[in-house]
């Protein structure tokens, strides 16, 4: 059973339906004490970083998520959820994140359109089970105005939008996707399934 963390930020419906179609069971999880029951966690999210981390703290989820990460079971942050995994964000003043991964969140700046909105290609940096079946150049759907700067050793895939954009990250059991896999056609479904498979622990 996968727990989709519900902390009042964003569209959980599409994500839950995507898991349903893949044949994986899930629950919406907002109670900290229940997190240990799940075989994997997804931290979704759209909206502002500061509001999100405040909600997570208010619900007592910060320690619960950090504690969960130490158990070695998989956690996936999606979009803002991925950004929350890092140390800090510069969105509307500096806010500390969960710090499960090293790096920071900064705004896109330059003479180009922001948000980075639409379908962009994945550039694969490290081939890992999460990327099984995903090809270099496959398109996924991004929509974000802030992006993550981090060490290259956690980068599984990037994308190109006037600079290298962090797209998929991983360290140990902690995963993140800046784009929306639940909105990214067959490539997104493949990535979600690969994550779900890790949660079931059946990946060989």
């Amino acid at each position: 059973m996968i727990g989709i963390i519900d902390y009042g930020m964003g569209n959980l419906y599409s994500l839950s339906k995507a898991l349903e179609r893949l044949g994986y069971s899930y629950e919406f999880a907002s109670q900290a004490e229940r997190l240990p029951e799940y075989s994997g966690l997804i931290l979704p999210g759209v909206g502002a970083f500061g509001d999100a981390i405040a909600n997570i703290r208010e619900l007592g989820l910060e320690q619960a998520i950090k504690g969960y990460a130490t158990t070695g079971r998989p956690i996936l942050g999606i979009c803002l959820g991925m950004q929350l995994l890092f140390e800090k964000s510069a969105e509307h003043g500096e806010n500390a994140g969960l710090g499960l991964l090293g790096g920071e969140v900064v705004r896109f700046r330059g003479d180009y359109k922001v948000p980075h909105m639409g379908w962009n290609q994945l550039i694969i940096k490290q081939k890992q089970p999460l990327l099984n079946g995903v090809q270099e150049g496959d398109y996924v759907y991004f929509v974000h105005s802030y992006h993550v700067l981090c060490q290259s050793d956690v980068l599984l895939a990037t994308s190109d939008y006037h600079q290298e954009v962090t797209a998929i990250v991983n360290r140990d059991n902690v995963y993140g996707m800046q784009f929306h896999p639940e909105k990214s056609g067959e490539t997104g479904m493949l990535l979600l399934r690969n994550f779900a498979v890790q949660c079931e622990g059946v990946l060989t």
């Binding site: 569209n11 419906y13 599409s14 339906k17 995507a18 349903e20 179609r21 759907y141 929509v143 929306h180 639940e182 909105k183 990214s184 056609g185 067959e186 997104g188 479904m189």
Partner: peptide, 29 residues
């Protein structure tokens, strides 16, 4: 939302934050 995996927008007759909430919660992006 339960049947497609691409983003979609809904417009028409949205006059308040409550209207927005109803539509986004139903699965519109």
């Amino acid at each position: 939302a339960a049947n497609i995996t691409i983003p979609f927008t809904v417009g028409g007759g949205i006059n308040s934050v409550d209207d927005m909430k109803r539509i986004l919660r139903a699965g519109a992006d």
